[in-house]
C-alpha cells in the first residue's frame, strides 16, 4: 500500500511539474508533427502507399519520441540533483522508479494522442480502437525498460548516446509484435487479439524485471 502511494506521489510530482513548466510535451508534440511531415515527403506518400507505410512510420516515430521522453525523465532530476534527495527519503528506490516510469508512460501516451491523429490527418492512416490499444499496451513495457535505462544512462558520461544504444535492442520485441498488430489492423485483416495478449505478456515480464533491477540502478 505504501509502495503504491509513494509511486503515485512521485508520478504526481513529475506530471505536476510538467504541467506547470510545460516544457517536454510541447517540444515532443512538435517533434512528432515534424517527424510525420518528414515521413510524408521522404516516402512521397499517396492514397495507396500511405496506409501501407504508416505502421512503419508509426513505430519509428514512437521509438524516437520515446527515447527523447525517457531521456528527459532523469535528466531533469540530475540537473537539479534532486534524485539523491528523493533516494535519501525512506521511500525506497523501487517505488521512486515505479513513479517515474508511470509519469513517463503517461507523457508518452499523451504523445501518442498527438501522433495517431496527426498520422490520420497527414498520412491518411486508417485508425481503429485496436491500433490505440496496441500502441498503449506497448507503451507500458517500453516505459518500464526505457526508464530503467534512462536512470542507468543518467549516471554515465554520454547519456544521450547510451540510452538509444541500450533501450532500442530491448524494445525490438514490442516493435515486432506491435508492428504486426498495427499492420494487420491498418490493412483491414480480420480481428485478431492474439498480438495484444502477447504484448500484455511482454508488459508483465519487463515491468517485473525492470522493477527488480531498479534497486541496483538507483542505488547511488
Amino acid at each position: 500500500m505504501r509502495f503504491i502511494s509513494v509511486a503515485l506521489a512521485v508520478a504526481g510530482k513529475d506530471l505536476r511539474s510538467e504541467w506547470r513548466g510545460r516544457e517536454l510535451l510541447p517540444a515532443l508534440a512538435q517533434f512528432i508533427i515534424l517527424a510525420v511531415v518528414i515521413a510524408n515527403f521522404a516516402f512521397d506518400l499517396d492514397l495507396t502507399t500511405g496506409p501501407r507505410l504508416s505502421p512503419g512510420i508509426l513505430w519509428l516515430v514512437l521509438v524516437f519520441a520515446g527515447l527523447v521522453a525517457f531521456g528527459r525523465t532523469f535528466a531533469a532530476e540530475r540537473e537539479q540533483a534532486s534524485l539523491e534527495a528523493m533516494l535519501l527519503t525512506p521511500a525506497g528506490p523501487t517505488a521512486v522508479f515505479a513513479g517515474k516510469a508511470l509519469a513517463a508512460a503517461a507523457l508518452l501516451a499523451v504523445c501518442e494522442l498527438v501522433l495517431l491523429p496527426a498520422m490520420a490527418v497527414f498520412l491518411g492512416s486508417p485508425l481503429s480502437p485496436l491500433v490505440f490499444a496496441t500502441v498503449l499496451l506497448a507503451t507500458v513495457g517500453m516505459a518500464a525498460l526505457g526508464c530503467l535505462f534512462a536512470a542507468l544512462a543518467a549516471q554515465t558520461r554520454a547519456r544521450e548516446l547510451l540510452l538509444p544504444v541500450l533501450a532500442m535492442p530491448l524494445w525490438i520485441p514490442f516493435v515486432v509484435v506491435g508492428g504486426r498488430a498495427v499492420q494487420a489492423s491498418m490493412t483491414g485483416a480480420p480481428l485478431n487479439l492474439q498480438p495484444l495478449a502477447v504484448l500484455l505478456d511482454f508488459d508483465v515480464l519487463f515491468v517485473v524485471v525492470a522493477s527488480l533491477a531498479a534497486r541496483f540502478v538507483l542505488d547511488e
Binding site: L152, L166, P169, L170, L205, F216, V217
Partner: peptide
C-alpha cells in the same frame, strides 16, 4: 553494477526477441 543490470536484462530479452 550498471553493466551487470544490462547483462541480465539483455539475457532475458534475447529469447523474447
Amino acid at each position: 553494477r550498471l553493466a551487470s543490470v544490462v547483462g541480465i536484462i539483455g539475457f532475458i530479452d534475447v529469447p523474447v526477441v
